[in-house]
Amino acid sequence: MKVRSIMCCCGGGVGSSFIVQINVQDVLKKHGIEGISVDHVSVSEISMHQVDLFVVGSDLTAFLADKPRVITLDNIMSKEELETKLLAALEAAENE
């Protein structure tokens, strides 16, 4: 199943999730990956959105326990960690 949408989540839905959104967009652009929408919200709003992949900091992983595809970041500011985990998740989704 191809990933068509990614939602970045944080506690408030403003600061860190927006930074992660920008970083996700940068990684996708760097690798020439197109056709994936990327947005950000607070964890309290995730139930209102149906997306293919969530990205969240490790402190909020429990809020997404019922979601099938979640990338958990130990350091939300690490582009290297994000890039590694995002590319692996996209590849895994392609092979499903």
Rank of each mutant, 00 (worst) to 15 (best):
K2Q: 13
V43S: 00
V38A: 08
L53F: 03
R4M: 04
E45T: 09
M1P: 14
E94Y: 06
K30R: 15
G11L: 01
D74C: 07
R69L: 04
L60C: 04
E34W: 02
I22Q: 12
H49A: 06
R69T: 07
E94C: 00
Q25G: 08
L53V: 10
I76P: 07
D39E: 15
E45D: 14
H40M: 00
A65K: 15
L53H: 09
E94H: 03
V56F: 04
V55S: 03
D59K: 00
N75R: 07
L73V: 04
N95C: 00
V41A: 15
H49F: 14
E45L: 08
R4L: 01
H31Q: 11
S47H: 13
I76T: 11
G35R: 12
N75K: 09
E83V: 02
A93P: 10
V55G: 03
V70I: 06
L87S: 04
I36E: 01
G15I: 03
Q25P: 09
I76N: 06
S44I: 04
V27C: 03
C9Q: 05
C8E: 07
F63W: 15
S16P: 03
V24R: 00
A89Q: 10
A89C: 04
C10E: 06
D66L: 05
S58F: 05
M77D: 10
T72V: 15
S37M: 09
C10M: 02
Q50V: 11
F18N: 12
E80F: 05
V56D: 06
I6T: 05
L53G: 05
I71V: 12
S5D: 11
